[in-house]
């Protein structure tokens, strides 16, 4: 349980982090909250030659910027969970954060680390795709903004180029009346999810579905955006047991999760149907007629 030898460098700004990362090359890893990287190092599954600690690179709080919620990369999950700004602007993000690990993990882990790590079972990647959020990155050639739908590519792999670091995450503010739900299936409190479902629903004046966003997580190489499949069933119709179950069936058919110690692939696939149905019904119950659409 002792990591192999590594060098350590502290960055006090994002440009400095980028510079250190360029110098360190492929053997360098960025250390934010360390809640995934450090255990992997202790198990010697990761053996970086250089750790670039970015904890000194910025300390901003989540804030609203012209209809968007901007969450700085070093925002801890516990802050996400409790911040009044986040709960007001994007409550689903606070809800998703509350499912991450345990209280110790949530106090150290950061949103930037979580998206850069891109664990397919991560709560934040799943929510960000559902929210049509984006990731702000800084690299040798400057800043760019990558849509969450393009950012998460496959297992532990993102659209980050060499030398790039995540500096913030941004999502649209959830308008009042938009219903939302984030649910996940776990075998034990604090564990990685077997299935995650994030749903956002807008109803029209008649209480019919005006727009639906649906993402499932933990069941593939990256968050699976099933909004089109959900829309095909629900658009301009009512969201009830039958229609939500139909989306669940289609969602289940669209994924092929692998076997894991916590549950077989077949079980997780079956549970996608259950959790999609429950998430859609829960989001619809929160939505107000003539809401955000």
């Amino acid at each position: 349980m002792y990591p192999s030898l590594f060098d350590y460098a502290g960055a006090t700004s994002w440009p400095q982090a980028v510079q250190l990362l360029q110098e360190g090359g492929e053997e360098a890893k960025v250390l934010a909250g360390g809640q995934s990287l450090v255990p992997m190092m202790a198990l010697r599954l990761a053996t970086p030659a250089l750790l670039i600690d970015v904890n000194g690179a910025g300390d901003g709080e989540p804030r609203r910027e012209s209809g968007r919620l901007v969450v700085p990369a070093l925002t801890r999950h516990a802050t996400l969970q409790r911040s009044v700004v986040v709960r007001d602007a994007c409550p689903i993000l606070a809800e998703a954060a509350s499912w991450i690990g345990n209280i110790r993990v949530r106090h150290r882990g950061t949103i930037g680390g979580s998206v850069a790590h891109a664990d397919p079972a991560g709560e934040l990647p799943c929510s960000l795709v559902a929210l049509e959020g984006a990731v702000r990155v800084l690299g040798p050639s400057g800043e760019r903004i990558i849509a969450a739908s393009n950012f998460f590519q496959t297992y532990f792999t993102t659209a980050l180029e060499p030398g790039e670091v995540v500096t913030a995450v941004e999502v649209p503010v959830i308008a009042s009346g938009r219903g939302w739900a984030f649910l996940e299936l776990i075998r034990r409190v604090g564990d990685f999810a077997l299935v995650e479902a994030a749903a956002l629903i807008d109803l029209d004046d008649a209480g019919q579905c005006a727009r639906v966003r649906l993402t499932v997580g933990a069941v593939g190489e990256r968050p699976v955006d099933l909004s089109d499949e959900a829309g095909a069933v629900l658009q301009n119709g009512s969201i009830d047991e039958a229609s939500a179950a139909e989306v669940g069936r289609r969602a289940s058919a669209a994924v092929d999760p692998p076997d894991a110690v916590h549950g077989s692939g077949a079980y997780r696939r079956e549970m996608v149907a259950v959790y999609v149905r429950r998430a859609l019904l829960a989001a619809a119950a929160r939505a107000g007629r003539g809401g955000a659409a």
Binding site: L43, R188, V189, G190, D191, F192, V261, H262
Partner: peptide, 14 residues
Amino acid sequence: SSLFADYLMPTSAD
């Protein structure tokens, strides 16, 4: 199961 992550001992929350 060689880690507690894969050994499902219940916690106080379970």
